[in-house]
Design a protein around this nucleic acid. Structure first.
Lengths: 243, 243
DNA sequence: TGCGGAAACTTCACGCCGTATAGTTTTCGC
DNA sequence: GCGAAAACTATACGGCGTGAAGTTTCCGCA
């Protein structure tokens, strides 16, 4: 996850001031992520960022109205990076091998989380002291992308999974319209029960990964890899697929 | 969850000073939990607790060496309360109805989490700014109790679940000896694959509940109840049981 | 009964934090 | 070349955890 890299050459199209501003904004976020990587999410303080950058803490207020705004921006970017990672794994997998596609997606998800534990905490945990998530913005977009990604898993397997996961009397208005606005056009064959299956699969993967990232799993098992693999084998089997 | 209630009568056996001390300790914890309930885990500050109790922040240092120690004590107590809740549900369920027992346990888990979201975050999330979990103590004990509880679920169902969950080449040394020290004597018939099943079930339940508690699920579905119920139905089915 | 010492608690202090206000320097557009 | 806007600094406030030192209260023992 290399975010906010310096531009190699200045673009002449936009003004110099504007460009500097964008670069500084990127540097602030880059520094924040760097601090988070070395000292956890709590290390994201305006003063520490400013110290690192050789400025005053208040200078950051020219770029972010508040610390929460900065955190929000970070969450958006990190969440987008996660969505990119799993989308890429999905796109790179063979389209005619559902079981492998699902494994590729799930492993991309877990690998990203283990490689960016602070990012995972930032997205799915209590991000930072006193932070209140705003409504709207890019983070819900990325969240939706991840959900749509899981819906793709469910859709790929739905032909064989319908037999065992088809009931549960789910209805379209059990789900958020915004989610359905993305899912239904993309996967017209997926019924409400399929979306429910997707959310449940999300829960399964999230649970195992969250327990691992937060250290609860390592206290019980010495081989979380094996456990995750078993989980996937079982998931694929339960979807009526063969690996 | 009513923790730290005042003693109805003073016990004569211990000295007055000692008793007062225990009461004050309980009051500190009670106040901390109360603050957490009204303002989230971030509201647990020594100064706020002291303010609430009409003392100085530094007076608390007579009872807890550091803020993290206080948080650790809270985690232990809250985790124990969770373990008590699920254990009670398990004990109260009919012993000859595995499917119902599992449902009872799982619902107790989710209900407790939804009723004590801050407690859940305290246990399973980033508890509080900058908090570092110590090694050892009562929290791992409670964690183990929960794990043993899930192992009980797996054990109850193992007769029918073995057919579909029996493989995966797990070994005893894939697991923490401390966990096995509790699990193996309690459930002698449960093989390594059964313990792995238990941990995976833990992951499933944890994932769904965590997504719900942290608000990620509500952004996608309007009926998490239904989703959780479908999850249990599917779990029970996958264990080879009938509800 | 009185006294020594421990325990409980307060006061003051330090350095951290987010952030508001006001002032200063730099830079762009005309 | 100049006026305005943008970028940044200085100073300040209140809140945080925590350390050191001082004060009061109370228990156990002679």
């Amino acid at each position: 996850m290399t975010l906010y890299s310096e531009p190699v050459a200045a673009t002449r199209s936009t003004g110099r001031r504007e460009r500097l501003r964008a670069e500084t904004t990127a540097e602030i976020k880059r520094t924040a992520l760097q601090l988070m990587g070395s000292g956890g999410p709590d290390a994201i303080t305006l003063r520490a960022i400013a110290r690192e950058m050789g400025m005053t803490a208040n200078a950051i207020y020219g770029y972010f109205a508040t610390r929460d705004d900065l955190v929000t921006a970070l969450i958006e970017d990190v969440y987008t990076a996660l969505a990119d990672a799993v989308d890429a794994a999905w796109a790179a997998s063979a389209k005619d091998a559902p079981a492998q596609r699902i494994q590729a997606w799930a492993h991309a998800f877990r690998d990203w989380a283990l490689a960016n534990p602070e990012g995972f905490r930032l997205i799915y945990g209590d991000p930072v002291p006193g932070y209140q998530a705003p409504t709207g913005g890019a983070a819900p977009d990325a969240a939706r992308r991840v959900c749509v990604g899981i819906a793709a898993l469910a859709d790929t397997a739905w032909g064989s999974a319908e037999r065992s996961h088809g009931d549960g009397d789910f209805d379209w208005d059990d789900f958020d319209p915004g989610l359905l606005g993305k899912v239904r056009p993309a996967f017209p064959a997926l019924p409400p029960a399929g979306v429910a299956l997707a959310l449940r699969m999300w829960g399964h993967l999230h649970g195992l990964v969250a327990l691992e990232v937060y250290g609860h799993l390592r206290a019980q098992t010495l081989s979380p890899d094996k456990l995750f693999h078993a989980e996937l084998v079982q998931l694929i089997r339960s979807l009526g697929l063969v690996a």
